[in-house]
Simulated assay, not measured.
Amino acid sequence: MITKKVPFYSLGYVTESLGRDLLSAFGGVLESNWFIRGPRSERFEGVFAKYCGAQFGVGTGNGLDALTLMLRASIELGYLKRGDEVIVPANTFIATVLAVCAAGLVPVLVDPDRETCNLDVSLLEGACSERTRAILAVHLYGRLADMPAICEFAKAKGLLVFEDAAQAHGAELDERRGSTGSPTETRDERLETKDERKVARSTAAAYSFYPTKNLGALGDGGMVVTDDAELARTVRMLGNYGSERKYVNKYVGVNSRLDEVQAAILLEKLPHLDGWNARRREIAARYCSEIKNPLVRVTPVPANPLSHVWHVFPVFCERRDELQSFLSARGVETLVHYPIPPHLQEAFTGASDSLLRHGVLPVAEELARTELSIPMGPGLGDDDVSRVIEALNEFV
């Protein structure tokens, strides 16, 4: 009889470990009577941008809005124009594709690399047309896409690069001549080498602060980070009804702003993010080395461990549904990310090339059919990790 389940992710661990601080942060907002576009959101924008190695951060209402406004601002500034094509990995949460469509651009879906599950750089050339103007890289599951290779290709083709970093809070590139730096360095010390951070290699990156993210709010929230001052200014205007000065509207904007409550909560959580990510890496290392079932495939730990924050730990099995039931019976909670790839969603069934363009996508469809996400998070104990590994290895 199962007496205790291994949770897929424990929201309670994070909130309980910071309980008093979170209550104090919320109380401070309540007492201030300032709930929108106040000092806390302004401070968090600056702190998180610096954490990412970027100059500017602009809070939004959610991650989808961050993606959409990042692209819309690029159109308003003339970097892109409506109808341009944007290369997007074919296995991603549909929000990535929705944002491209919402901005009036055309997603071009490209199959992923089977091992990393991220954009397959070798397929970029074949995906380009005379209308291709940008690449939107997705750091799926918390693993950075191959940004140096993507940016090198984009530079040669004259393309812009954007990032969907919704699952990759704290992931870092390794651009210090093969060294990740001393493990005793603080993040601020590592950031002294500005080009180490991935954001510096792209036009802008969009983050989500959905509650289950590595850095999550107590509701929805998002942010665009960039080194482009005009892009940041335009994103801010678009998210504030198209206005920089009250009642003066330059653009046809929307209402999408990070509120003071969420900013206050995120300010309290951010100092703990590196520690939480380090625990995720410890768990992932055990999974990768101790899961020995030939029926279950795991993605490898990258050569630079800092480039992966393991938002999700995926395993792949041709008998995915059987495996999920097997684990459930042993008290191990799991989820599937994502069972239907964007190009097979009803929303895009029969879509013309003017809305969505793609060829055959066998790897994306295989990953959708076989992926199963197992428990991951800083609240997972060593005994829980052992139970998950044992259960996976017992599946026959």
Results as ranks from 00 to 15, higher is better:
Pro7Glu: 05
Pro7Lys: 07
Leu11Phe: 03
Gly12Phe: 02
Tyr13Phe: 10
Tyr13Pro: 04
Val14Met: 09
Thr15Tyr: 05
Thr15Glu: 09
Glu16Pro: 00
Ser17Arg: 11
Gly19Gln: 11
Arg20Met: 07
Arg20Cys: 05
Asp21Lys: 14
Leu22Cys: 05
Leu23Ser: 04
Ser24Asn: 12
Ser24His: 08
Ala25Lys: 07
Phe26Leu: 14
Val29Met: 02
Trp34Met: 14
Trp34Cys: 15
Arg37Lys: 15
Gly38Phe: 03
Pro39Gln: 11
Arg40His: 12
Ser41Asn: 12
Ser41Val: 14
Arg43Gly: 04
Phe44Asn: 03
Gly46Arg: 15
Gly46His: 12
Ala49Leu: 05
Ala49Ser: 08
Lys50Arg: 13
Lys50Gly: 10
Tyr51Leu: 01
Tyr51Cys: 03
Gly53Pro: 00
Gly53Ser: 00
Gln55Tyr: 02
Phe56Leu: 09
Gly57His: 06
Val58Leu: 07
Gly59Arg: 11
Gly59Trp: 05
Gly59Asp: 04
Thr60Ala: 06
Asn62Asp: 15
Gly63Arg: 05
Gly63Phe: 04
Leu64Trp: 07
Leu64Ile: 12
Ala66Thr: 02
Leu67Thr: 07
Thr68Phe: 04
Thr68Lys: 11
Leu71Phe: 06
Arg72Pro: 00
Arg72Ser: 09
Arg72Val: 01
Ala73Glu: 08
Ile75Ser: 04
Ile75Cys: 11
Ile75Leu: 11
Leu77Cys: 06
Gly78Val: 09
Arg82Asn: 12
Gly83Lys: 14
Gly83Tyr: 09
Ile87Val: 14
Ile87Thr: 06
Val88Glu: 08
Pro89Asp: 08
Pro89Ala: 11
